[in-house]
């Protein structure tokens, strides 16, 4: 079949085929772009410090937020019957945000100094967390450890 096609015709035909492949490439890339844009709608959250979150006030209520701040160990309380964990994170200006987490207490709660929480503010200004991540930079140089092992051993994640 192919041999019967003259050289010039062959080239044109090949180009057309190549165009078809390029079109398919375009379709795939558009689909990927659509997936990414679409996924942003589902999985986006503000990434704020405690100070930034406090500055925005009630405007944040109900919106998904990831917030980082210093953990105040004296505020940690764990009610086994829930189980409910409550604690406060502190901004650099001294502002406090009370966190409520329905779940078990992460292992390293007592020695953690930093917390990252994911969840939403309610109308009263409390933060309802569905994920609590902690880090304890002191003793084990957890961060360096984290670097070395390609994971997050210094930080413990608790998810609901």
């Amino acid at each position: 079949m192919q041999k019967q096609i003259k050289a010039g015709q062959w080239e044109g035909w090949a180009l057309k085929k190549q165009t078809r492949v390029l079109l398919a490439v375009g379709v795939i890339l558009s689909a990927v772009a659509f997936l990414i844009v679409n996924a942003f709608g589902q999985g986006k959250q503000y990434y704020l410090t405690v100070d930034e979150a406090l500055a925005q006030g009630s405007a944040l209520a109900g919106k998904p937020v990831r917030m980082s701040g210093a953990l105040d160990p004296s505020t940690v309380s764990f009610d086994l019957s829930g189980p409910v964990l409550t604690f406060s994170v502190k901004g650099q200006n001294g502002g406090l945000v009370p966190i409520v987490y329905h779940g078990v207490k992460p292992d390293n709660m007592d020695m953690a100094t930093q917390a990252i929480v994911e969840g939403r503010f309610d109308r009263s200004g409390s933060f309802l967390a569905n994920k609590v991540m902690l880090s304890c930079p002191s003793k084990y140089q957890s961060s360096q450890t984290a670097a070395a092992v390609g994971n997050v051993p210094g930080s413990r994640t608790a998810t609901q």
Binding site: L35, A39, Q42, G43, K44, Q45
Partner: peptide, 24 residues
């Protein structure tokens, strides 16, 4: 990227990664 573009730091959640990467 978001901080660099608009000054607001926005993170994506696990749902983002799953929503893109599971179909792929």
């Amino acid at each position: 990227i978001s901080q660099w573009l608009g000054g607001v730091k926005i993170a994506v959640t696990q749902e983002f990664f799953n929503a893109v990467n599971v179909p792929l």
